[in-house]
Design a binder for these strands. Structure first.
Lengths: 206, 206
DNA sequence: TTTCTTTATGTCATTCTTGACATATAGATT
DNA sequence: AATCTATATGTCAAGAATGACATAAAGAAA
């Protein structure tokens, strides 16, 4: 089974959902650490059903199109449980912003500072949203957060991961923005920064 | 151009490299935040050359097979510079370990604690390696680290990002391992943990 | 002598992922 | 009346990524 399959099973282990619902969750809660569009989700649900990991029943709705509600089977829960206990393959982190930072030395200082300040601001916004959810969880879910066998505990755990992630990114962006901003070539002389020079020497060993 | 293309250009903007060298870099320095196998790199280099972003020359070697050494063109550097200054698309983070944590409530406490302790240990190992490199950079590259127009400054910046990433992950793994470990159903009674119960109630709203 | 490892370059099939296309119901808005 | 949004489910083509397959030269080890 694919990782996406386990992501979907992780949702269905909590509650029965339609494909549409799964798609919504993928942009919300689970979206902290996984993502997929509906064009991936519907075929994957079909594959999960083929494999006997989920079943569906059609729910007729007035005032809305009918929907297929999926739920995890025993086999599905077993597979999920087994997968969750195995160490994941160590794949390289792919972060486009860090990749841009790797070439930031080519970019004008002010422009780069603007980019990383702005990105830092976004991380801080996301962090604030997460902290809000965290506060809400710690109040409303207090009883479950000490019980690792409760689904809510697991949701809380992933949120904490998201918080540390956003915090680290925000901190790094702030640091980088400041580092590229203050230190233009003039070193305190010219009031405005001027882009120049190309920087084409010193190309060894970075 | 693809993101991989910019990753390769980011390397070639520093020094001329063969496809093999690029592949090695992708498992090392750049591997902090991007990754690719040689089966992706060779075709991408060909595409970059077709687009006029890189050129190559064949270097004949005694005692080694001949190699194609690629270097970035002016057009390549310009494209890289422009790309580096644009905000990246905000894609969902895909982290398989966090996804496993999302289903950790299904897993036996001791088993889960073992998993996250072990993963935490790996993050700490990686962190230690990064910190070592950092110390080395701060000594050997001291003159460049205050100059954002130096390639080494950019390399250092990405390393700092990696350090914060590993630190956050290590901290989270430690916390999670402890949380799932101490709090087994018995709460201090039974010496050994026993898996049981299935946990199939309380399935709403996580 | 054979095998193994490192350097060195490529292809190919499959899978994963994205974005566009496609359809349909119903309420709300213009 | 026409359009827009939200719900609801799907397909398809193209691109990205992985892992296996394939070749080759030279030194080092068995």
């Amino acid at each position: 089974m694919t990782t996406l399959g386990y992501a979907i099973l992780g949702l269905l282990a909590r509650e029965a959902l339609s494909g549409y619902d799964v798609t919504q969750r993928m942009k919300g809660r689970v979206g902290f650490f996984w993502g997929a569009g509906h064009s991936q989700i519907y075929p994957e649900l079909a594959r999960l059903e083929e494999g006997g990991f989920v079943t569906h029943s059609v729910v007729e709705q007035r005032e809305r199109p009918d929907k297929k509600v999926f739920e995890a089977t025993e086999a599905g829960l077993d597979a999920l449980k087994e997968w969750a206990a195995q160490p994941p393959p160590r794949k390289p982190t792919k972060d486009e912003l860090t990749l841009k930072a790797y070439s930031v030395w080519l970019v004008d200082g002010e422009e780069a500072a603007r980019l990383f300040r702005e990105e830092g601001r976004r991380y801080e916004e996301q962090l604030a949203r997460y902290e809000e959810i965290r506060g809400w969880m710690e109040e409303e879910w207090a009883d479950d957060l000490g019980r690792p066998e409760a689904p809510r505990f697991a949701s809380y755990a992933t949120l904490r991961r998201g918080i540390l992630y956003e915090k680290g990114n925000a901190e790094w962006c702030r640091w980088l923005a400041e580092a590229v901003e203050g230190k233009q070539e003039g070193s305190g002389k010219s009031g405005k920064s001027k882009k120049k020079g190309k920087g084409k020497k010193g190309k060894k060993g970075a």
